[in-house]
Computed example of a mutant assay.
Amino acid sequence: MSEAEALHIVCPHCQTTNRVRAEQLGSDPTCGQCKQPLFTGHPVALNDVTAFDKQIGRNQIPVLVDFWAPWCGPCRMMAPAYEKAAAELEPHVRVAKVDTEAAPALGTRFNIRSIPTLALFVGGKEVARQPGAMTNPAQIAHWVKAHTPPG
């Protein structure tokens, strides 16, 4: 991909697909529709199936999803590290969370058997999965980078 190539980036606020030149990803781009930042440095809650499908299917950057539940101790232990990893991985990776209690259909659809489970999507397809808590932000970032195509 050339630096001047435009990427489709889905707004985490209004789910509008935006075109952003690759070299402008790190320049705090905003949504053309709602004017909110396209990247916040925090995980995006994707408990709505439609929003989830747009983020996974239309983003031309990898999407990392944490399938979790509020009652899960390991999920709560991993949350601070996941938050810090989001700040490191964005804007080259969309970082999201799915509460499997609020969105059980997504947990079922992706055959989530244990939580927390990280799933990495590239080009709309799941390319890697990691069950169990990772409590080190660098470990999460390393895992994502190891499963993401270069470029």
Rank of each mutant, 00 (worst) to 15 (best):
M1A: 14
S2H: 13
E3H: 01
E5H: 12
H8V: 06
V10P: 00
V10G: 10
P12R: 07
P12C: 08
Q15Y: 13
T17L: 03
N18K: 08
V20C: 06
V20T: 05
R21M: 14
R21T: 13
R21A: 14
A22S: 14
A22D: 01
A22N: 08
D28T: 02
C31M: 07
P37D: 07
F39Y: 13
F39A: 09
H42M: 09
V44F: 02
A45N: 08
L46I: 02
N47I: 01
N47H: 05
D48N: 14
F52E: 06
K54A: 14
I56N: 10
G57S: 05
R58M: 12
N59I: 06
N59C: 12
N59V: 11
Q60H: 13
P62A: 06
V63S: 09
L64T: 08
V65L: 10
V65D: 04
D66Y: 05
F67G: 11
F67M: 04
F67L: 04
W68T: 10
A69C: 01
A69Y: 09
P70T: 15
W71N: 13
W71Y: 14
C72F: 10
C72S: 15
C72H: 09
G73D: 05
P74W: 07
P74K: 11
P74T: 07
C75Q: 03
R76A: 00
M78Q: 15
M78I: 04
A79Q: 12
A79M: 12
A81E: 11
A81R: 06
K84C: 00
A86T: 09
A87S: 15
A87E: 13
P91M: 04
H92I: 01
H92T: 09
V93A: 03
V93T: 15
V93I: 14
A96E: 10
V98L: 05
V98S: 06
D99E: 03
T100N: 02
A102P: 01
A103H: 07
G107Q: 03
T108K: 07
T108F: 10
R109G: 09
F110H: 14
N111V: 08
I112V: 15
I112Q: 13
S114H: 02
P116T: 04
P116K: 06
T117H: 11
L118E: 08
L120Q: 02
V122I: 14
G123P: 11
G124S: 11
G124D: 12
K125P: 00
V127Q: 10
A128R: 05
R129Q: 15
G132P: 08
M134S: 09
T135D: 02
N136V: 15
P137D: 04
I140E: 12
A141M: 00
H142Y: 02
V144W: 07
V144Y: 03
K145S: 06
A146D: 15
A146N: 11
A146K: 10
H147A: 04
P150N: 11
P150F: 08
P150S: 04
G151E: 10
